[in-house]
């Protein structure tokens, strides 16, 4: 593996981090904020640790939530047009690399504003539907100035 592959896979930052006091300038990326050792670093004076051969990286939530790191953005929800599915204050994990299909929740640009809605594709017609019945849907045609900005993969809420 060359350096770029190592960096891409995240192995490089792990490896560097094992050096004491290394003033590493991590390039901003969404990967692995919590870095865990790949090997046990403590050396026991008496008996070697029986767990030595079994050390693994700790579970990483980024790995679970993010498929395309370069295309993943975070968005905060304001308003209740998608309640009860998505609530005000939720943190959305938005992936621009995923293709949005019928039924997906998306972030869309409608003219000069962003909105979070459910995408409906039926009989060649596309609609942006609110989950909250108090809001009307937006029917899209060739003339609408609408762009699907990204697909909402996760909404994160603190309970």
């Amino acid at each position: 593996m060359d350096e770029t592959t190592l960096l891409d896979s995240g192995l490089m930052t792990h490896a560097l981090d094992l050096r004491p006091q290394a003033p590493i300038k991590l390039i901003i990326q969404q990967s692995t904020a919590v870095l865990c050792p790949l090997v046990a670093t403590r050396v026991f004076a008496g008996f070697p640790s029986p767990a030595e051969d079994w050390t693994e990286g700790r579970l990483d939530l980024n790995e679970y939530l993010i498929t395309h790191p370069n295309a993943t953005y975070y968005v905060r929800v304001a308003g209740d047009s998608m309640s009860d599915e998505i609530c005000e204050g939720d943190l959305l994990v938005v992936d621009r690399a995923c293709e949005a299909r019928d039924g997906d929740i998306v972030v869309a640009r409608v003219a000069t504003e962003f909105t979070v809605k459910r995408l409906r594709k039926r009989n060649g017609q596309m609609r942006l539907e609110a989950a909250n019945p108090a809001f009307s849907s937006l029917i899209l045609d060739e003339d609408s100035d609408v762009e699907i900005w990204g697909k909402v993969l996760w909404s994160i809420r603190r309970h």
Partner: peptide, 10 residues
């Protein structure tokens, strides 16, 4: 790059 400044969408 800053949690306090991410996009807010209605």
């Amino acid at each position: 790059t800053n949690w306090d400044e991410i996009l807010v969408i209605a």
